[in-house]
Amino acid sequence: MVKENAKIMVHVENLKKDFDKLEVLKDISIDIKEGEVVVLLGPSGSGKSTFLRCINRLEEATSGKIIVDGMDITDKHTDINKAREDIGMVFQHFNLFNNKNVIDNIMLAPVELKKMTKEEAHDKAVKLLERVGLADKAEAYPSQLSGGQKQRVAIARALAMNPGLILFDEPTSALDPEMVGEVLDVMKELAGAGMTMIVVTHEIGFAREVADRIVFVDGGYIVEQGTPDEVINHPKEKRTIDFLNKVL
């Protein structure tokens, strides 16, 4: 849900990323507004995930500029840890902390980074677990959860820091088909609540229903972007049409 005159949450300018000789991102520029839900579509190897990982500097940009909520991510002098507190991330393989139970997974960052007292973090974690429908799993360890449950905990963990933006890196790709729905439902609820989200996914249905904007990426460039109706129902570029023909 993008409000009128919403501020720019993410500003990316001429982003380039090489891995040694391999150019993954060639020239990406995009502005994303607060509250906007942007879905990145594109064939595998097109650079979607790399783009996402550049935004919180899990990958260092080769050149170009990334500004998130006023913080210059590409500037070496920026305190990246401080910046990351405001940028949640949800991973394809969940990456829950295996040595901690569910509630401790969620409480770790707020407590360790002195954002909240233990009590506050605990209350918040309990509320978040209710929100993702896992109030009864607080004491469980990650190994005792299904994939869908793990991913919902991972979303709760990201939310615990009250981020202004959440990055989703193929959040349902590692799930059994029957668990995809429960994770997408949580993401829909988040989108409805006004969270700024950048989502890399292959779930065209989700993109159609929830995205404010769809960005089609291929070969390290943004090939085409627009509303779901524009990109999915009336694509203009040949590469977009080819891709959609394969996945739809």
């Binding site: 919180n56 401080k82 991973f91 990456n95 360790e112 990201a158």
Partner: peptide, 15 residues
């Protein structure tokens, strides 16, 4: 230990 564990911790802002 899987690299994702470190990445997840860093993504939350931990040093």
């Amino acid at each position: 230990v899987d690299r994702g564990q470190m990445e997840a911790a860093r993504s939350l802002g931990l040093t």
